[in-house]
Design a protein around this nucleic acid. Structure first.
Lengths: 230, 230
DNA sequence: CCAAAAGTGTTAGTCTTACACCCATGA
DNA sequence: TCATGGGTGTAAGACTAACACTTTTGG
């Protein structure tokens, strides 16, 4: 009589952030293929399998639902309100992920998703269940995190014009920053190596220096922790 | 054939911190009454019930196993390694809790625990499963957290001599702090109101002023977030 | 009067913030 | 030559960190 349907189910959800010059910081969402809330937008995610680690479950679901591979993955928060899913008691461990070159990774939905698409963080649709709360938690986390870890690099290519980094911060924080103070402080971290390449934007303007990201110093820094007020 | 024993089980564990003048910052542990690892020390915790929120489950287990009521409860991290428990795949959501007046709350073990006891954070016993990892995560969290939230107050009585606050920080950080800088910075937060009482320690020494904690200003501050480097 | 703990100020150095002009390019 | 975005320095103020002597009490 102890039917397995009376057990709590365990799921994972992922908030995947990407950056592109044109759209700024965006989040990857899927359109649900099945009820409940068929065709509504949701975070990618699904049930954890027996014997599978939480992180493996997230990566598997992301592959299945969006075709994407993430570059950085960190646990965000576990949402356990028994009423968060109308069907049954489902506890979801939410993850926070960053991908490089958001616009150039091919999105291909299949299994449980009708469609997968990027939404800029200030043009988000209504989401199913408590997914808006999850997403807001993730946005709060990334905004906080960027102040004490140079995670911006996880969203950019290995080489990038300095202005990309600046635009990423502006988009993420949703406000202007002082270019002079920002560049001084960023360069002082010693995680950027200047290259001899230049980047010419389409349109007018002086070409900008291309930097590459010094992985070794970055890992050192990530361990120590930084204080990066902007 | 899909026996319910093949499902992932969901548990909660709690790392409860308390402070006393004599022992500094301590953690509440229980001695297991049943196998596996009967008589070994462990974090209090247990399975989440159908329809029960995670936080309710933590509070219930703490009551059952230790008789204690916590003052502050915050989610820490979810531990999901399928091999963390030798019996089966059990995912545990760990919580981080603070209690006032650790030494004066009556500990009474019953249900699943042989015994419950406080251990100073630098004299911890070996723990079962991955509980040492959970505990280390919690210690890292509280050490970090104390730098940007005045959570020290959650561990002290409503009124306390200033030196208690200082000793709490020393015990938690495991190193000496500069008394002059500490008190200047702490008082500048405006969350301490001076009372007209004095506290006479046993033994020698000048009596110290007794402060009380301004809840209103504290809540304001907690919202804004502080930067409290020591 | 000695030992122990509480209370209190100043200074140098570092970090943060605010602010404006020149440069290289394409149209 | 104009419009656009890139690149760079300086000065005032705030905060941090380092440091020692005086006060009050009990023994």
């Amino acid at each position: 009589m102890a039917a397995s349907s009376t057990n709590i189910k365990l799921a994972v959800d992922a908030v995947v952030f990407g950056y592109s010059k044109s759209d700024g910081v965006s989040v990857l969402l899927i359109q649900r293929k099945y009820a409940p809330f068929k065709n509504s937008w949701a975070l990618p995610g699904g049930f954890v399998r027996q014997g599978e680690s939480l992180e493996d479950a997230v990566r598997r679901e992301l592959k299945e639902e969006t075709g994407i591979s993430v570059n950085y993955l960190e646990q965000l928060y576990t949402f356990g309100d028994p009423k968060r899913d109308p069907r049954q008691h489902i506890v979801s461990v939410a993850y926070f992920a960053l991908v490089k070159s958001a616009k150039y990774q091919q999105l291909k939905a299949d299994t449980d998703a009708e469609n997968a698409s990027w939404f800029p963080i200030n043009e988000l649709p209504k989401l199913v269940f408590d997914h808006s709360e999850v997403l807001n938690t993730a946005i709060a986390r990334i905004r906080m995190k960027i102040r004490y870890e140079p995670i911006g690099f996880e969203l950019l290519d290995r080489k990038f014009p300095f202005s990309d980094l600046e635009h990423l911060y502006i988009s993420l924080l949703g406000r202007d920053i002082d270019r002079r103070n920002f560049s001084r402080k960023m360069l002082a971290l010693n995680v950027l190596d200047e290259t001899d390449e230049m980047y010419k934007a389409e349109g007018k303007g002086r070409p900008s220096k291309v930097y590459k990201f010094n992985k070794k110093n970055y890992e050192q820094l990530a361990k120590e922790g930084i204080n990066f007020e902007i």
